[in-house]
C-alpha cells in the first residue's frame, strides 16, 4: 500500500460513479497498487451487484418516480388548465371522432337529398315556371297607384322591388313606382304655374330639385327590371339604339345636375333636368312595357 487506504464510503461512491474525476483517478491508482483496497472494492462490487439484482424490479419499475412525475405534471397542468383543452381532448378521442363523422355524413346526405329537387334536371322546369309567372298580363287599372299613397316609397319597399321583378306583384310594384314621378312632375308643373314662389320652399337642403330623389329611385327600379331582360327583349339594332339614347340622356342629366348645383336658382336647368329624367324613365319603361306585352302574347 503506497497511500492511505480509502474508507468504504469512498469505495462505494467510486463504484457508483459519484466521485469527481480527479478523485476517481486517485482511487483507481490506489486500488491498482493496494491489495486490501482491491479486495474491499471487489466486496463492495459484489454487494452492490447483489443488492441491485435484488432490487432490480423495484428500481426499474420507477414507480415512485413515475408517480412523482405524474403528480408534478398534474399540478403543472392544473395551473395551466384552459377551457378548450378538455373539449379538444374529448373531441380527439377516437370514439368521439367516429361519432362526429357519422353525424356529419348524415347531415350531408340529408342536405344533398333536400337539394336534389333543384338539381339541373328540374332547372328548366323551374325556368318555365318563372316564365309563366312573367306572362301574367297586368291590367291598366292595376297600374295606377292608390289615391292616398305617399309620393315617395319607403326605402325598404323600393329595395324589395329592385331585387326581382319576376313575379306579377313585384312587377306591379315597379310599375307603381314608375307612375309616381309623373304625379310628382304634374305636381311640380302645377306648382310652377300656380306660384313660382312655392318651388324654393319645397327644395331640399341638399340642393336636389323637386322630386329628384323620386326620379332616381324609379330609374333604379326600372334599371334593374330592364337590365335583367334587355338582352332577350331587344334585338341588336334596338339594343344599340337603346344604349345610345340612354347614354345621351345620362349625359344630359349629369350636365344639368352640375349646372343646377352651380346655380340653384337656374329654373331652366331644372326644367331640362326634369325633362331628361322623364325621358330616361320613358326610355326604360318602353323596354319594360315591351316585356309585358311579350309576356301577354306568350
Amino acid at each position: 500500500m503506497t497511500d492511505k487506504c480509502f474508507d468504504i464510503g469512498t469505495m462505494q461512491a467510486f463504484l457508483d460513479g459519484e466521485l469527481a474525476a480527479e478523485m476517481t483517478e486517485t482511487v483507481a491508482r490506489h486500488v491498482a497498487a493496494c491489495d486490501e483496497c482491491a479486495c474491499l472494492l471487489a466486496e463492495s462490487e459484489e454487494e452492490s451487484a447483489l443488492t441491485f439484482s435484488a432490487l432490480e424490479m423495484e428500481l426499474n419499475a420507477l414507480v415512485p418516480t413515475q408517480r412523482l412525475w405524474t403528480k408534478i405534471n398534474d399540478s403543472i397542468a392544473r395551473e395551466k388548465k384552459s377551457f378548450w383543452k378538455p373539449i379538444l381532448a374529448f373531441l380527439l378521442q377516437p370514439q368521439t371522432a367516429a361519432f362526429a363523422s357519422l353525424i356529419f355524413v348524415a347531415v350531408l346526405s340529408v342536405t344533398l337529398l333536400s337539394l336534389k329537387p333543384n338539381a339541373p334536371t328540374n332547372y328548366v322546369a323551374q325556368t318555365g315556371e318563372i316564365q309563366q309567372k312573367t306572362i301574367q298580363p297586368i291590367a291598366k287599372n292595376q297600374l295606377s297607384p292608390p289615391a292616398q299613397t305617399p309620393l315617395l316609397l319607403p326605402e325598404e319597399k323600393n329595395t324589395e322591388t329592385i331585387k326581382s321583378v319576376q313575379n306579377k306583384a313585384e312587377y306591379r310594384a315597379a310599375k307603381t313606382a314608375y307612375v309616381r314621378p309623373e304625379k310628382v312632375l304634374t305636381d311640380a308643373k302645377s306648382r310652377d304655374t300656380k306660384s313660382d314662389a312655392l318651388v324654393p320652399a319645397v327644395r331640399e337642403n341638399s340642393g336636389n330639385i323637386l322630386g329628384e330623389e323620386s326620379y332616381i329611385k324609379t330609374i333604379a327600379t326600372l334599371n334593374t327590371t330592364v337590365a335583367n331582360r334587355k338582352d332577350e327583349i331587344l334585338s341588336p339594332s334596338a339594343r344599340f339604339a337603346f344604349e345610345r339614347d340612354l347614354a345621351v340622356t345620362d349625359d344630359a342629366i349629369a350636365r344639368m345636375k352640375l349646372e343646377v348645383r352651380r346655380n340653384p336658382k337656374n329654373e331652366a336647368a331644372k326644367q331640362i333636368l326634369r325633362a331628361s329624367y322623364q325621358n330616361k324613365i320613358d326610355l326604360l319603361n318602353s323596354v319594360a312595357d315591351k316585356t309585358e306585352l311579350m309576356a301577354s302574347l306568350d
Partner: peptide
C-alpha cells in the same frame, strides 16, 4: 384513431 379518420375521409368524399 387512424381507422376513424379514414372512415371520416371516406364518408366526406363519398357523397
Amino acid at each position: 384513431r387512424r381507422f376513424s379518420l379514414l372512415i371520416l375521409a371516406v364518408c366526406l368524399v363519398a357523397p
